[in-house]
Amino acid sequence: MVTKKICFTFARAGSKGVVGKNIKPLMGKPLLTYAIDEVKKLDGIAAHYVSTDGDDIARTARDNGADVIYRPNHLATDNANEWQAWQHAVTTLIESGEMSPDDVFISVPATSPLRTAADISKIITAFESTHGDLALGICKTNHSPYFNMVHRNSNGDVEIINQRSGVFRRQDSPNVYNITTVAYVTTARFLLENQSVMAGRTIGVEIEEEHAIDIDTQLDFDFAEFLMARRNSQRAV
C-alpha cells in the first residue's frame, strides 16, 4: 500500500506564556513560519496543515504556503489536550478523503524555530527504519531526578526526587533526556487508537540541544532570538 507523509503544525491563538506567541516576530519573521519553511525543504511530503482557532494564524499559514484546519474551541483552551487536537486534525482529513489510517502523521510544532529540516528528516527516518509506533526528538539534560532535581515535601523541605538512587555526583547519574518539540512521527491509525506518545514503542532520536530550544516563556523567546542571531552571523561569515 502506498502511504503519504503529511505534516501538521498545531498553533492555537490563546497562548498565555507569550501572548500571540505563534505569530510573534522572531528575527523579523512570525514564529510559525520557521516550521513551515523547514517542512518545505523535506522530500516526499504530501501536504502541510496548520491546525488553529485563530484567523491571524490561519492567514499567516496560508500566506506562507500551508493549508489550514480550523479546530473547535474546546480544543484550543489552556487545558485542551494536544493529543485530541492531533486526533481532530487526522479525523478531519480522513473524513475528507485526504488521508488514510496508514498514512504517516508528522507533527512539527511552531515552538522549536531552531530545528532544521535535517532534524525532522532524521526522526522520520528513525520511524520508518524501526518497528516503533512513534518517534520523537530527545536531547540530553543537565538536570537529573537521580541527582539534582528535587520536590517539596509537606513541610516545605526539598528532597531529591529519586532518594534511593545512591548517586552523589552528576557524573555518576544515568543519562536522562528531555523530550523535545522538534517533531513527532507516527501513523494516523496509532494516533486514533491511543492516547499518548508513550502508549506504544516510542523511539527517541537525539537532537542537538541548540536545535531543540522550545519556546514556552518570554525568556525562552529571547534566548531563541539570541541563538538565531548568532546562527545567522555565523552563516554570513
Rank of each mutant, 00 (worst) to 15 (best):
Q195W: 14
V68T: 09
D56S: 11
G14C: 07
E225T: 06
I179G: 10
A135S: 14
T180S: 09
A61L: 01
S112P: 01
I207A: 00
T111E: 13
A58M: 01
K5V: 02
D220Q: 05
F223W: 12
V205G: 05
E210Y: 07
L75D: 06
I69C: 07
A110C: 08
K21L: 14
S233K: 15
I120S: 10
S112D: 02
R235V: 07
L42I: 05
E210T: 13
T9K: 03
D220G: 04
F168N: 13
F226W: 10
R12T: 14
I23T: 09
F10G: 00
L42Y: 12
I160H: 14
P30F: 06
Q84Y: 11
V237D: 15
T186W: 10
Q218I: 08
M149P: 02
H74L: 04
T91V: 09
H88K: 04
R170L: 11
T92W: 02
I36M: 03
T180F: 14
Y146K: 07
N22K: 02
R152L: 09
P72V: 07
T125Q: 12
Y184K: 12
N64A: 10
Q234P: 00
I161N: 10
T130V: 01
T3F: 11
E209W: 09
E209P: 04
G54T: 02
V182I: 15
V150N: 14
T180C: 09
Q171M: 04
G156P: 07
P145S: 07
Y184R: 11
P113E: 03
P30N: 02
E38Q: 13
F10E: 13
V176F: 06
T141H: 13
D55T: 02
N64R: 03
R230F: 04
G28N: 12
K41F: 06
A46F: 14
E95M: 03
G132N: 06
R62F: 08
I45S: 05
F105A: 06
D63S: 09
N175T: 09
C7A: 11
V237S: 13
N155F: 15
A46G: 12
T181R: 08
V39M: 01
S154F: 15
P30S: 03
I36T: 10
D67T: 03
F8L: 01
I124Y: 15
P72T: 10
R12L: 01
R152N: 07
T180R: 06
D102M: 09
T180M: 01
N22A: 15
N175I: 03
I138L: 15
K24G: 01
N81M: 04
